[in-house]
Design a binder for these strands. Structure first.
Length: 284
DNA sequence: GCCCAGGTGAAGC
DNA sequence: GCTTCACATGGG
């Protein structure tokens, strides 16, 4: 049992991974990245060849952290499965060490319901308010900033629409509240979806209010790890059209077909590389 | 003021 | 089927 542990690894850009728009609660404080994974407060520090983690309370088994960070993944193997074309070579060069996390399905689903037509900085604001107001307080290190767990579905289902709107989520409030109720009531079982074929799980997710193809694909990829999920938002659409179909009109449906056939067994990773590449304009 | 942001659902054709 | 529009809020 200890509160600190160091993990040896390579090809892991912690800062890019935690801020590239897949998770929304990580904050930089001095040399540490502070966040919450499940019901544990944790902070992470990256050094060359290792990541050091510190928790508030002693930990016997660190699997929750290595699983979240996907430390066992061989990034070289992932990248070798990318198509060998110019757009992907440029994206890889711009996103050194970018990894996919493996997040909690409910937090991921709720976060992306709040993401629609919002900039990442605003999504972070909304989620911060939501956690402060409705999440269970967590133990932190002495002198650490207060922290809360992501609010449980039942807690958000119990909030009023007006209360949720006060967290600045606007028209997304009824979507979040109703979906929270369906999860809390067991009409949708997020743990069961983990074991279903990806097409079936996607169809189940899309039944939830405020969840369409894009948000369903985010949950399939970021929470369940389905590499065939390829979320197409405005940035990825821009990337596909500019880089693969310049000066042509291509429908969203056609882009999905192209993505499904072109990007291979690391498609989900390829999507995140294109997303980050476009958002940062090729800067690292 | 204007356009845009990790979209979705409903209404119109 | 596909296209258009409303929906809140804040950044640039």
């Amino acid at each position: 049992m200890e509160t600190t542990r160091t993990f040896a690894l390579r090809d892991y850009n912690l800062a890019t991974t935690l801020t590239c728009g897949q998770a929304f609660r990580w904050q930089q404080q001095d040399r540490w990245w502070t966040g919450v994974i499940g019901t544990r407060w944790v902070r992470l520090r990256s050094e060359s060849g290792s990541i050091t983690a510190e928790t508030a309370e002693p930990v016997a088994d660190w699997d929750w952290l290595t699983h979240y960070l996907q430390l066992h993944v061989d990034l070289g193997e992932v990248l070798r499965a990318f198509p060998n074309d110019e757009p992907m070579r440029a994206a890889v060069a711009a996103c050194r060490g970018l990894r996919l996390l493996r997040q909690d399905p409910w937090e991921c689903l709720a976060s992306f319901i709040l993401s629609s037509t919002k900039q990442i900085v605003q999504i972070r604001q909304i989620i911060t308010l939501l956690c402060e107001r409705y999440g269970e307080p967590l133990a932190v290190v002495p002198g650490g900033t207060r922290a809360s767990a992501f609010p449980a579905p039942a807690r958000l289902a119990r909030a009023t629409e007006a209360e949720l709107r006060a967290c600045k989520m606007g028209f997304r409030a009824p979507y979040l509240r109703t979906t929270a109720g369906l999860i809390a009531g067991g009409q949708c079982d997020l743990e069961r979806l983990r074991d279903l074929p990806v097409e079936v799980a996607r169809a189940e997710l899309i039944k939830l209010p405020g969840v369409g193809r894009k948000i369903a694909d985010c949950v399939l990829l970021f929470a369940y790890g389905s590499q065939s999920a390829f979320p197409v938002d405005v940035w990825v659409m821009k990337a596909l059209r500019q880089l693969y179909f310049p000066r042509r009109r291509v429908s969203l449906q056609r882009l999905h077909q192209f993505a499904a056939s072109h990007f291979g067994p690391s498609a989900g990773y390829a999507q995140q590389y294109l997303f980050h590449y476009m958002r940062t304009g090729g800067r690292t």
